[in-house]
Structure formats: structure tokens, C-alpha cells
Design a protein around this nucleic acid. Structure first.
Lengths: 210, 210
DNA sequence: GGGTGTGAAGCCGTTCACAGCA
DNA sequence: TGCTGTGAACGGCTTCACACCC
């Protein structure tokens, strides 16, 4: 739609918003780029660049109007009507993510869980109804779900991703250790925990970063 | 220590290893860069670059010797004696990560959990002993822990990070939504779930990637 | 002086294009 | 021909440096 905003900037916008909401809670009204930068441990130029990218301007005397900026960010990140999200795979990780996320972002609602285990299917789990995977396409259509969080065992991962694409998913958050292959029109974010931990362990061991 | 390997390459090395172990399990002995690339959905040049970076050479006729390459990667990623890991914050996420990771990588052992809740302290949880946070420095020294996974509530996050640094941590995997400020000698990987989900939701909504 | 906004430079990781070898 | 290995080009994100304004 609008001009392309780089992935890194989108991530920071999400964090800016949360940081700004905290400032708002403490009754702060305006903020300078260097103040926001300090709260996030980045540079003020980075902040101004990102805001430039989204076409937001401040004033030289007062910096940025916090609540106005929050609305601007919301216009970019949020869907006006909200977006429904499904969690695929109700193991420990799926449940933890579900309960962590529910109620955290008003425009992102986890509306369905999916699993194959009959012990889990057709019950409320962590406050959300769990369907059998057979129902995936049906429920995705009915609830207009475009975003899925994938937390199934590795050997089911690619197969589930394919089902998701058929069901019309547009974005997948992949916590599985399997790199997914899907149509390029589907956005995938890979957050495999083993890889993350091995990376941290590597740098912890070598101190090669700086 | 050795020449600097970029973060992205380290992540891919972790994934190469797992992919290669799968090939080994199927009794494959040699592999071409394009085969490994196909399994990971990346380009063969990328694979060869990464291997060049770690100083590994193949043969033009047979490609790379899988088990030899696995050992080379292990030499880079793993600590010979293994590394001990702690999980800080035993909520749903902390427990899920603990049970997900235990036994998954032979050289990375989760040896301690920490919490403040007396219901959790001094018990085995998900197969690992949970200590009170007061004991953090003591246990970190005793078990030589250099890697921590942070899954505490947001308002405790920075304070815990500071304690971790004092206790001698060298790498933190941060699942908290708070950007951490620590000494630059400590490596931090930020994997905030809200940010990840908001990013995926953004691209799902706009289809601006490609 | 201390802010914002931004062209230009710099840096880093990826990809191109091709040399060299079996 | 089909592979590996690699200098050079490319592209995207970050930082520098500075114009402009209160």
C-alpha cells in the first residue's frame, strides 16, 4: 500500500509505541528524539529517520507530541477493525504464547487454537477455543484469520505451513526449527528458539561482538 | 577470538548443522551447496560464502563431507565442555522454553531456574531446580553460568538484567518487551513476542514485502 | 545552544559474474 | 558440464555532517 517501510523500522515503531505509552502514563506530553532514543538505547538520528520514514514531523521547540505520534504509529501498524490471530499447535509453547498475548494488544486478538490431540480439541485452553486441525480452513474463512503463530513439532511444521497458506494466511510467526517454504506473498518471521540460544551462547563464549 | 563471523551467518550455521544432521540420519555422506541451500530455502552462493567464512572447503566432485562439516560447525558454535544456561522468571513462557530446550542440544544445559514466588522456589519445575533470585549470584558462580534466558514480567526486566551482569552473565536471550541496557561486553538478543507479532501482522495486512 | 530534518557517506551482508578445477 | 571459491558490484540500513529553525 503506502511506501515501503523497512522491517527494522517496523520493529522499532512497535517498540516506540510501547515506550511512548509508558511516558504518556506518567503524564508526559511532548518528547524529544533524544529522550525516546535514550529509553530505547538507540541514537536520536535513528528515531528521527524512522519518523521521517512515516512522514511524521515534530516541532523544534517541543519535540514530538506523544499521543499524536502514538496515533500515527497506530495508523501504520494497526488494522482499523483489528486482526484475528490463530495459534497452531497447543503444546507448552503454544499455550504460553497464547496466555502471554491475550489482551496485550487491543487490535490483535487470538481467536482460535488448533491441534490434533483429542484431549485438547473442543475445549477452552488458556481462554481460547481449541479446534481440530481439520477445521482449519473453515475457521480461518469464518473468522477472517490472516495471521498465524506456528508452534507445532518440527516434523509437522512444513505440512502445517502449507495448510495455512491454502487457508489464506498472509503472515506466519514461526517458532518451529524448520525453515518454511511458502508462496512469496506470505510473510514469514523465523524465531526458532534453538537458533537464538545457540547464537547467544556463541557470543557469550567468544565475546566477539562489541 | 577467531575472525569475526557475522550474526546472520552464525544463525545459519546453527540451522545448517540441524539440516545436515537430518541428512546424516538418512545415510547421506556428501552434499552439494545447492542441496543444502534447497533444504534451507536460500541460495547456494550464500551457503558457500558462509563456509568460506569459517574456512571450510569442499571438493568440486563431491561437494562437502557432511559429518566432517558438522564437526567443523560444532567447533565454532559449541564450547567443548558445554555451557550452562539459566532461565530467569518461571511463568508460562519460562516453563515452556525450559521444557522445549532440555535435552535438545547436548552442549547447552539448562541447569537452574530462578523466581521470587515461594510457590515455585526450592522445587523441581519442568525437570530443573528452581532457586530464589537471591541466590542468583551464588549459583551463577558455582555453576559457571554465562548464558541466561530472561522471561520475567516487563517491570522487573531491566533490574534482573543488571543483576545478571553483576553475576557475570555474558549473553542474554531477552523475551521481555523491554529493551535492555547493559555493559557492551554482554551480548543481547531481543526476541520480544509482541514486536514480532506486530511486525507479522503489519506485513500480513499490507503485503508490502516481496 | 539545542532542537529537527535530510543529502551524502559509510558499513555490512547478499548477489553477480566468472575463474579454476574435476 | 557442473561444481567450488571469490573479487567486485549491489542494496539496504545506519551514521555523519550540516542546513535550518526556535
Amino acid at each position: 500500500m503506502k511506501k515501503n517501510i523497512p522491517e527494522k523500522s517496523i520493529e522499532r515503531l512497535s517498540q516506540y509505541r510501547r515506550t511512548l505509552l509508558n511516558f504518556l502514563k506518567n503524564n508526559k506530553v511532548n518528547i524529544y528524539s533524544h529522550e525516546l532514543a535514550a529509553a530505547m538505547h538507540i541514537t536520536s538520528v535513528q528515531v528521527r529517520r524512522d519518523l521521517m520514514l512515516i512522514g511524521y514531523s515534530g516541532s523544534q521547540s517541543k519535540g514530538y507530541d506523544i499521543s499524536d505520534l502514538v496515533s500515527h504509529i497506530a495508523e501504520i501498524l494497526d488494522d482499523e477493525k483489528g486482526q484475528n490471530v490463530a495459534v497452531i499447535g497447543v503444546g507448552n509453547m503454544g499455550r504460553a504464547i497464547t496466555s502471554y498475548l491475550t489482551g496485550r494488544r487491543p487490535k490483535l486478538n487470538i481467536v482460535a487454537l488448533f491441534d490434533i490431540d483429542n484431549e485438547k480439541v473442543n475445549r477452552m485452553i488458556s481462554g481460547v477455543y481449541c479446534y481440530h486441525i481439520e477445521k482449519l480452513e473453515e475457521i480461518f474463512k469464518k473468522e477472517n484469520i490472516k495471521v498465524a503463530i506456528l508452534t507445532v513439532p518440527a516434523d509437522a511444521s512444513q505440512q502445517m505451513a502449507t495448510k495455512l497458506v491454502i487457508a489464506g494466511v498472509k503472515g506466519i510467526l514461526n517458532y518451529t526449527p524448520v525453515p518454511l517454504k511458502v508462496s512469496s506473498s506470505v510473510f514469514i518471521a523465523e524465531y526458532d528458539i534453538i537458533t537464538s540460544l545457540e547464537k547467544v551462547a556463541y557470543y557469550a563464549k567468544n565475546n566477539n561482538h562489541i
